[in-house]
Nucleic acid binder design. Structure first.
Lengths: 221, 221
DNA sequence: CCTACCGATCGGTAGG
DNA sequence: CCTACCGATCGGTAGG
């Protein structure tokens, strides 16, 4: 988790491992702590003092890294989105069949969420729960990221449709159905503490194939 | 919106329409205002003073209706869940075919979300973003509601599977795929300010049929 | 990275 | 439903 949030260019594990906590820099711990707390309690529900306590420094020290709580959130979002982009999108452009590439992309997206659920939780908080001036800054960043994500998927489905690799439907509808299913699986994972909602690899593939073929089965064709 | 949040047994529109704002009782306006603000800014991001200002009274007056901000949230959740239950579940037990009943249920669920998006936003906030003692109270309420919702769907899919009305798969997997798709559509609606993400009735039905038959179409059978 | 502190606002109460 | 007020905590700063 911490590594994807590391400040750019840092080689902390080699150079500073002796003095810092477990070799993780304060900035890394700040990012990880803020991500976890924002995800748990929301942005408004988390104070800078809460974050400082988890990092293990005094509140005033956080202001050496960010000029404000708002800047901290924005940096967290920017890093998280870049990481999500890099982890999920490449699979779409792979060498296999359309069906295989979409499955690889779906699996990568679910895995990213399982491993970095705090980040995905923050994306959601940011997209819906922040108003005022900060809300406008966040909206700009989020919508930019979402646009590039959707564009990639739209062109994938346009291509798949022409190749006859998917159902005979409007590519935008295909893209929408896929995105909403993925969206639901990720959202479901975030709120899932239940045992029966666990997503091991076997069940994920079974459920994906069921989604691909349709829950209506032969009756729906 | 206000009517589903009205205090039980109130006949406000007939008896008090002369003096209160547009005939809506203060309690009604309190519930509606709190719902809108919690949905917009999150629970921690909304103060009692914010709510009072929208209602049009002083902060202290809110404490005539609820002993605490936590109690206000709990009451809001309870009312909202009962409303969602009543609006979405009956369709599942209707007289038509399994496919028709599931579509009616899906459409009712989407409509409820479109009309009461603040409530659905609060369900999500409550499920993921509140910790501590309040978090435990909320979890208890939410998981109770979710359990009855899932039980209803599980038995529907068990029944549908036996009748050969759905794909030949584990009813729990069928239920999961359906719930996650629905989940995604609702979540998508909450964050959607975009034009291309609008859900008119035609598109909803088109997209639903595509989901039912599978985006893989003939290639996936 | 710390101690010490700022004005503003938090949820909530007293008393009417 | 109001005015007036409580101690605690908020985001942030000064100065080292």
């Amino acid at each position: 988790m911490t590594e994807i949030l590391s400040p750019a260019g840092a080689a902390s594990s080699l150079l500073e491992s002796r003095e810092a906590d477990e070799g993780v820099s304060t900035h890394d711990r700040l990012l990880a702590s803020a991500a976890a707390l924002f995800a748990e309690r929301g942005y408004g529900g988390t104070s800078m003092a809460d974050i400082a306590e988890r990092v293990g420094v005094r509140k005033a020290s956080l202001y050496n890294y960010y000029a404000s709580k708002e800047d901290l959130l924005m940096d967290l979002l920017r890093r998280g989105m870049e990481a999500a982009h890099g982890a999920c999108l490449p699979a779409l452009a792979g060498p296999g069949s359309h069906r295989r590439r979409l499955w690889d992309h779906f699996r990568a997206t679910v895995r990213f969420t399982v491993e970095h659920s705090e980040l995905v939780a923050i994306f959601r908080i940011a997209a819906t729960q922040i108003g005022g001036d900060l809300g406008a800054r966040v909206d700009h960043l989020v919508s930019e990221h979402r646009r590039s994500f959707r564009a990639e998927l739209s062109s994938f489905f346009l291509d798949a449709r022409e190749a006859g690799a998917v159902a005979d439907a409007d590519p935008e509808d295909l893209s929408y159905v896929f995105r909403m299913f993925t969206n639901g699986v990720l959202t479901g994972h975030l709120g899932a503490c239940d045992v029966d909602e666990r997503l091991d690899d076997e069940r994920l593939e079974r459920v994906w194939n069921l989604f691909w073929s349709g829950i209506g089965g032969a009756t729906g064709a």
